[in-house]
Design a protein around this nucleic acid. Sequence first.
RNA 1: GACCCUAUCGUCCAGUGGCCUAGGACACUCCCCUUUCACGGGAGUAACACGGGUUCGAAUCCCGUUAGGGUCGCCA
Length: 442
Amino acid sequence: MNPDVRVRFAPSPTGYLHVGGARTALFNWLYARHCGGSFVLRIEDTDKARNTQEAVQVILDGLRWLGLDWDEGPEKDGGHGPYFQSQREEIYERYFQHLHAGGHLYQDNGAWRFRSPREIVTVEDLICGRIDFDLTNPGTHPDMTIRRPDGSWIFHFVNVVDDIEMKISHVIRGEDHLSNTPKHLELFKALGKTPPRYAHIPLILNKDGSKMSKRDAGASITSYIDGGYVPEAVRNYLCMLGWSPKDNREKLEISETISLFDLEKVNRRNAHFDLDKCFWLNGQYLAQMSLDRFRELCVPVLNKAGVPFESEASLQPVLSIIKEKIKNLTEVPLWVASFFTDHYEYDSEAVQKTLRQPKSGERLLALASEFESLHAWTLPEIEAALKKTASVLGFKTGDLVHPTRVAVSGRSVGPSLYHMLEVLGQKKTVTRMRRTTELFSL
RNA sequence: GACCCUAUCGUCCAGUGGCCUAGGACACUCCCCUUUCACGGGAGUAACACGGGUUCGAAUCCCGUUAGGGUCGCCA
């Protein structure tokens, strides 16, 4: 445990949370939690042109959805704020004057540039190792601009100032910043401050190795939120992109990931994103989570879809028989609806395949009568009645099972039939079976 | 173009000089289980980029080539 460990996630509000950014946030968060340190969220909104409240909200929502709570940041003051760069003007001005007084700055066409000391700068990276950058040639490494003619600030400068002011101990960020690091080190030196430790994590690319852009499947965290994914599953998948517990396990409780996580064990090669595997893990989480958690996730989805369930309690038995069968929350309304409404749709293909068959009406009516006569509506009773009817009529079990399923739910896929009927109830089952034969004139 | 990072099955992750005729997972194919769809169980296809070294011995260390990615902004 080391409370002096302070890390930060510093996104700029571009209007969406990229999956790579989310993983950067995740690794920062994991490291902070592992060390017992602090996770700071800082919004880098120096580019006034494209800053909106909504764009910030998308980031906050995404992080919260993934369960990445910050100790300091927007809506959570921790004594190092404000946490929006747009509100830190005086701080930057102060540091600017300091650099200016030290003779490190000069003006060029109205913009302010930092005069590089022209040295070989060594980066000691926790993941990439020791790297020497030769900055002695102005031709290949021009002096960086830190302030525009209109007085606004450039990324490199404010990023460094904030890391100093916020007492950041470890900078964990994407590898796209590795080549920027020597510049930042020059700034720390000129300001007379000790730089933080650096850890550059590899990038996430598309499965084919191309750069992942906003439009690509799985690129935006919003697409998981809206796409029926379970947050803990997505978080787990992201943990395994560039890191692993080294023992071939892939589904890991977050608490265990926290205790095992370490920067030294992070991979050095770029990861190619595989949505199929994320989807598989989502199904694993769904199947194995508690019924209460499942209900918690299903309720908003059902409400949004307008499925008229009576109460959360009435949902429980229904959800318990579908939980292990679905792989994505978006499937839930379709699997649940027919339990709560008589106006379910009949899938035309299913009707054609199982109802529009010789003697299907006879079978359904016979079974409905048998069901009606049952005194106890339990799993074994239902199963026995169906098998008995099948044998009396001279049909195979499946010849009764399939039409019955379509009759009471409108679909050819669903939970185990006996469980489904038990939950539906005796009366509804019988009514629906008879109604179906009339509806299709069987 | 210059500089930097990387290089094991299609993909993710193991492997840090001998235990590797390279292991686990996703995807794919086949089989079993089965009232549907899934789950589960079993089997299979499939990789150390290439070339030089070092060493008794290399996926593991070194060099080069090639390939991929990144940075070189008055974007962040």
